[in-house]
Amino acid sequence: MPEVIFSGPGGRLEGRFHQSATRGAPIAIVLHPHPQFGGTMNNQIVYHLYYAFAERGFSVLRFNFRGVGRSQGMFDHGAGELSDAAAALDWAQAVNPEARACWIAGVSFGSWIGMQLLMRRPEIEGFVSVAPPANRFDYSFLAPCPSSGLFVHGDIDRVAPLKEVTGLIEKLKTQKGITIEHAVVKGANHFFENKIDPLIIEVSNYLDKRLGNPPRIAIPARGD
């Protein structure tokens, strides 16, 4: 996938971008796990989410938060990373001015950032939140949650225990006008070690349902 460099509030940001061949295709932004615990845009879950969207016709961007890889700046405990995510969406929209919709996907820390971006950008119509650490970060800003989406968690996640996330999800499910779905991957820990395939199956099934089973698009550079 083509490497891109775009301007962020803390300096240049490094990313990978897949441009859909379809005019007006929707946009997806994929956000990686915690930068201080090894999270990068090349995380395997991020990588597979990226291609799940690309194969369904999206223009997709994944990128390194500030201070990760070749992205400039320093870790900013979430505030700066949220600004980075907003800049990433701005960049993707500038490249795709006719995009008819936007989605956000995030993994762990990236989920927390993504859901905050969702609250600030009304054009985001769907989300995928993988292993949201509701016990470590405050998700109370989701009041109400403005868009329908999917939460996915492992049942043996000890970093962000399932029971902590279930309370958040049950609260969100009571809101009118949106539909919140929750998939639990059996035998999966916080990092979905040896369980990435069933994780991506859950995400793919959800996307197909929301998008009306779009035809698969072969991505030649799948191995990048």
Rank of each mutant, 00 (worst) to 15 (best):
A79T: 14
F192P: 02
G69Y: 01
Y50L: 03
Y206G: 04
L117A: 15
R100L: 05
F151I: 10
L118E: 14
E3S: 06
E81T: 13
E55M: 14
E164V: 08
G223E: 14
R120T: 05
I29E: 00
I200H: 12
H77Q: 15
G114Y: 12
V130I: 15
I178F: 10
N205L: 14
G177R: 10
G106E: 11
A88I: 07
D84E: 15
L89C: 12
K171M: 07
F151C: 08
H190M: 14
A160W: 04
P220C: 09
L61E: 06
S111M: 12
I201N: 14
T22V: 15
F58D: 00
S140L: 05
Q36F: 06
S71L: 08
Q175T: 03
I200S: 13
H190N: 13
Q36D: 13
I104L: 13
N96L: 13
G24Y: 06
G126M: 08
M119T: 15
E193K: 15
R121I: 03
S147D: 12
S148F: 01
L13S: 09
V185D: 13
D224L: 07
F58S: 00
F192T: 01
L49I: 13
G67D: 03
H34V: 03
Q36W: 04
G10M: 09
P215M: 07
V95W: 04
I104G: 00
G8E: 05
E125I: 12
I200G: 09
S7A: 14
G67H: 04
L162N: 09
I124S: 10
V184N: 01
Y51W: 10
T166S: 14
A87R: 06
E98L: 15
G223W: 05
H182S: 09
Q175S: 08
P198A: 12
S204Y: 01
I180E: 00
P161Y: 12
